[in-house]
Structure formats: C-alpha cells, structure tokens
Design a protein around this nucleic acid. Structure first.
Lengths: 218, 218, 218, 218
DNA sequence: CATGAATGAGCATTCATTCAT
DNA sequence: CATGAATGAATGCTCATTCAT
C-alpha cells in the first residue's frame, strides 16, 4: 500500500522531507502543466511556482520528466481514492455500479483539467515511466471489471463474460470524454444531464446484447 | 470542395507546387511525429525526412506548428473520406449506421497511429489552428448525428432526441479508443472481436433507454 | 557629369533599361530603408516594393549593399542638385553664401529622412563604396569652400584662410543636424526659426575671429 | 546617483555580480561594435570576447539589443563624467564655457570611436531604449544650456535667450563632428588645431548677433 | 540540505544569393 | 531579359542540468 515514488531516486535521506517537497513540486507543476502543457513549462518556472530553488528541486527529482511522472501518479491516485471511497462490500453489483459511475462522472468533472493533463501528456513520459502510468490506468479500469463481475455473480448485471473487460474500458472512456471532449459536450450538456444520459445509455447495454451482427453489412 | 490549406500562407506562387510539396511535408512529418512526437521532432529532421532543404520547407510553411496543422488536417480529411465512401443515400438509418460503424472501426485500425497522433498533439496547436481541427472533429461527429436522425425518421433507430448528439460523440470515442487504449485492448481483442462487441453494445442502447436513474444511489 | 553608377556592374546590356530599373530600385529601397533601416529590410521586400521580381532585381545589382550604395548616391546627387540650382556666378560671395545656406536648410528639411538615412547607414557600406559616398560628401562640402573663398576674394567675407575648410564642414554639419537632432530641435523650433537663428549665428563668425584663446583655461 | 540599468532585467539575483558581468559584456561588445558594427557582430562573438559562455551572457541580458543599450548608456555616462569633472560652481560663465568646451573636444578625441558608435547605432535600438539614450544625450546637452545661462546672468556671455538651446546643440554637434567627420577633418587638423579654431569660431558668435538676415536672398 | 550561477548543445527560423527554366 | 523556387550557412536565443559554495 506504500505509494511513495520509490521509482524516482532522490539525493535526500529524510523520507518525510521527500514526501513533503515532492507534494510541493506536484502542486506547482500541475498548475503550470494545465495552463501551458508539459513542454512549454520550464523547470525554472516549476521551481519558482512551487517555492523551491532550482537546485533544491533537483535534489528531489532527477529529470523534468520525473516531475511529469509525479504529477500523473498523483492524479491517478487522487482519482482512485475517490472511486474507492464509494466502494462498499455489501452493495450489490448493480448498486455498486450505479454509485461508482456517478462518482466517476463527478470526479471527472472535479478533476477535469487534471485528467485531461494525463490524457495529453502521458505520451511525453519515457517508456518505463509510461508503463507505470498505464498500469495504474488499468488498475483503475479493473475496479469496474470487479464491479461487473460481482454483478454477474449476484445476478444484478447481465453481460457477456468476455465483454466485461471491454465494458470496463468503455466506462472509463465515457467518463474521460467529459474532459477531452468538453469543448463540444460542455456546450450542450451540464454535468448532471451528461451523467444521467450516459448512465442511461450504459445501463441499456446490460439488457439486450442483441443479435444485430447478422450478416456483414459492408 | 476545395480543401487547400489557405490558412497557411506560403512564399511560393505556384499553387500546384504548394499542394505537392506540402504533401511531401505531411508524409515526412507524420512518420516522425508518430515515432517521436511533435516536440521531440526537429524541423531539420522533418525537412530531411521529406526530402526538402530546411530553407525550401520554410517556403511552404511559416512555423513548425503549421506542419502539425497540415498533418492534423490531412488525417481528419483522410478519415472523413473513408466514412463518406460508405455513406449511401438509399440505405435506411440502421443500415447506414451499421456500415459506417464497421467502417469507423476499420479506419481506426488502419489509421491507428495517425488518429492517435491527432489525439495526442492537437493540444500543441496554437489556439486558432486548434479551433479548426476541433471543428473538423465535430464535422465528422456530425456524420453520425445525421445517420441517427435518419434512423429516427425512418423508424429503424430508437433514441431519445436529445441524446443523439451525445450518442454521436460516444460512437466517435468508442472508435477512437481503439487507438488510444490499444495498449490494453490489443492484448485482449483483435479488430474483428473488438468491432463485433462494440457494435453489439452500441446497438443494445437503441432498444432500451431504460429507467435506471431511479433515485440517487450515492 | 556622368552620374551613371558604373561602379556597380549589371548583367544587362541596355543602358537605358539599367538606368530605369535602378531608379525603380532606389525609390522602393529608400521607402523601406527610411522606415526600417538597411539591415532590417530584406532583398525580397525591396524587390516587391519596387515592383521587380527578386531575380530581375539581381540582374541590375550584385549585392544588397549595392542597393544601399545606389540609394546614398541618389540622395547625395539630389542634395547637390538643389544646392547647385541656387549657385550663380554673378553673385558676390556673401550673397552666394546667404542663398546657399537658405537652400541648404530648406533641402535638409525637405529631404530630412533621406539625409538621415545617409547619416545612419553609410557605415553599412563596404569600404570601397563608402569611400565614394564620403568623397561625394566632401564634394558637396567643397561647394561651401568655394563660396567662402569667393567671398574672401571679393571682400564680402572675412575669415581666417586656414579655417575655411573647417567652416565649410561646420556649415554642412549645422545643416545636417536638422535631420539627426530633429527629435530635440523639432520640439523647439520650426524650420524658419531654425534657419534664421543658425544663419545669424554662422554669420556672426565672420565679423570677429576674436582673441578668446588667451591662456589655457583648463 | 545610482545608475544601475534597472531597465534591463536579469535572471541573476546578486546585484554586484550583475554590475560586474555587465561591465565585462560592455567592454567586449564595445570592441566588436567599433570594429564591425552592431549588426555584423554575433552574440556568440560578444560572449567569447567578454569571456562568458553564451548561456551565461544571456543570464545578464535579454536580447542582443540590450547589449547595445548597455554600451550606449556606458558611453554616455563616461562622457558626462568627464564633462562634470571640469564643472566648477565658482567659475564665471565664460570660464566655465571655455573649460568645458576644451574638455568636450578632448573627450571627443579620447572617446572618438565610442562616440561614433553611439552616433551610428542608436537607431538600431528598440524605440523605448532609444528614448532613454536620446534623453541622456539631451541631459548632456543641457549641461551647456546651464553654462550659457550662467554666463548670461553674470554678464560674461551675450546671446539671444531663445538661441541658448540651439547653441547648446550646436556645441554638442561641433564636438561630435570630430568623430563622425574625422575621415575628412583628421586629414587637415590635429586635435589642438581643431579645438583652437572651433573655440574661436564659437566664441565669435557671442559678440555679434549681427543683422545679416536683411531681405530674402532666395 | 539549500542555493543559484554557469554551461553549451540544441532549436526554430531567416535571408542573401543562385540558376534552371 | 525575366522569373521565382531552391539553398543552407548563419543567427539569436533557450533551457535542462550540474556543481561549487
């Protein structure tokens, strides 16, 4: 359960200090990355924004990309925390799904620019760090896999077993689109409307796995 | 129907030459952007890759960002071209939807790295150019809006009128996720499987717009 | 009396054409040099401004500096033309001086930005071209030398013989300062006032070559 | 009395270091500007000449034009310093004038290439910086205005009150011409000769403000 | 631990000039 | 004679990172 970014070495011994300084760095960097993007933000700006000197900042990271990694990790953990908060062992599958969907949309709205950031900048990470970020993305996706499986077991959700994984990804993407398509969706729907309609559409998928794929239409 | 990028001024007078050289530039740049991303690609590299001298390349563009714009424009028009190819006035709404969904997934697969590129780099465009790219994205989305409307009129598709727009966006996003979630989806599904399941799920949404939003589950 | 810039070779045979095209070039270039200075003006801009293609322009010059030379030569000859116009063999020395001073100030005002141009950009000329321009400057200065000598001969002007040259330079400089100190002088004096006062001051110098240099005041 | 160039921001915090490094930059740049002019001097050359790396140099300036500004400012303050050195409250107006004229010519000779530099390159400054340089030029000119006024008050100098300003400008220009007309003057006069004659001519102007402007000679 | 001055490889872009058509 | 596309060396400037204090 340790989340400490052991991935990123530091010159400093005092673990507590590392934790605290890195949090400063993350908060400063997030503001700048959201505003200007990763590439257009300079390390000097980050240092200034988070109230550290350049030298000091570099005691806690090794490269600029480390900052991006810290930021991505933070955003993901923040998102996961929110979803876990509404998870409840005793809920039925469908109850759990409804609750977590609601929370998902809500979180996507609250963390809109942050999630967008992950979307846009993950690709700027070096291969190894990117893997960690993607695996975290998968971990969160798996939260929905487990909910769907629970629903299948307790009979509250019907879905083709081999579509569960896909459905979980769909849910994540439908949630995230509120961030990366907000330029269009925001003009037509507010969060409430968006949530209601998307939930309605998603849940419609659990009733009829209809036989549409009759014949090749091409 | 002329699409010539009049947005981007050129020092050269011969329109035919502009067209041709810019196509060279696009092709070279796409290869590099896909491989290394926009920021990590050098203008010199682009020039070399497309067989022009740096000076000559700059006769056909004004800034590096112009190259990105040309690339995005090209990708979008390529995608639109493919979708328009399967559009047929005489098809019923549902037939049209089935065909174009199929084509969408197919195109997303063929143009996987290209569409991914748009996804990741649109944000690197300057504001004004970004607008054009997003409006093109919307234009393509509207292709699906029109198909859904047709289906509603001819009774082959049932959907809440005020969800049509949302549904069109969902379709686009479900298609695009094959590119930006391929790192996960590609492990579990091949294109055929992905297509079949997504179409099945999507079409399930046209049968029951069920009343799930009963009470607040939070 | 030949003014043709034989200094600058051309690819073209037709002398009349050379004359005409070069005049075009000069007129275009002057406008731009006055506005932006020599270095910040590009050859392309010059070509455009004078209505020639870059290629054609280069048929009539060899380098960008040639254009500057043509321009300087033109301005100097224009200035000389004006001064010569008021020269009259029959005038006495002092009459001639009064007339030509008046004309000098008047010309400096009319050609203010042009003379300023010579002042600021002569130094950008290559050594050999610069020499020609400076020798032209001297030629014009010598106009005043001759006037002063005439005045000494006919007794209408008193001045130490070995100060004549200096005085001629002073006259030129006092005239030119209307161009290069106009940022300050223009606030306090209009051309008429400036002319009257300077003439008054200058002419005061011909009465008393007083013995002020009594002892070293330092 | 602090003159520190607060106009030009620096990345460096240590004010003492800024002062010192900028002096290095000025000295290196002056040598090169004098030799090759502003435009033909490269930022890399400046850095090399003043013994800084290009990166370090840019920590102390923002643009190449800043270097030119620093240089102009330095030259002006150097010139002013020399003139102020011979100013003495107790001298009469005419004494003060004689001393400062002598010093002016002397300084113009010692700083010949520097003053020439200001003359030729001020126009290369961006508008706002140019204003400062011109205002400094005016400030120095005003030194002579004050001397003339003093002479009028104590009766040692006779001059039309509304010509004082003009006369001060004339003095400056007569001094500066030793730099920008040295190509001609240097052939005929040495500094001593030039000084003696110019002082003689200038002082002649304080005796007779003669009535030469009788009738319009044009 | 903290600081911030120093570094220089690297980048996007320009522009005088040429030369094939 | 006229044209304008092509060229690439050269330029001003940036910025991630280091390291002496």
């Amino acid at each position: 359960m340790k989340k400490k970014s052991k991935l990123i070495p530091s010159m400093i011994k005092d673990e507590r200090l590392i934790e605290q300084r890195r949090q400063q760095i993350i908060e400063g960097a997030v503001r700048l990355f959201v505003k200007k993007g990763f590439y257009k933000t300079t390390t000097r700006e980050i240092a200034k924004e988070c109230g550290l000197s350049i030298g000091t900042m570099y005691e806690y990271i090794q490269t600029k990309e480390d900052v991006l990694y810290l930021v991505c990790e933070y955003i993901h953990s923040e998102l996961e925390k929110r979803l876990l908060k509404v998870m409840n062992e005793e809920d039925s599958g469908i109850e759990s799904l409804l609750k977590s969907l609601k929370k998902l949309f809500c979180a996507m709205d609250e963390m809109r620019s942050l999630v967008l950031l992950i979307y846009q900048e993950t690709k700027s990470l070096p291969r190894d760090k990117m893997k960690y970020v993607l695996s975290k993305e998968e971990e969160i996706t798996n939260l929905f896999v487990r909910i769907l499986e629970k629903g299948m077991k307790d009979g509250t959700i019907q879905i083709d077993a081999s579509s569960i994984n896909l459905m979980a990804h769909n849910i994540m993407v439908i949630g995230q689109m509120w961030t990366f398509r907000h330029w269009a969706l925001g003009r037509e729907y507010d969060l409430e409307e968006f949530t209601k309609r998307q939930m309605s559409l998603l849940l419609g998928q659990f009733t009829a796995g209809g036989e549409w794929n009759a014949g090749d239409p091409t």
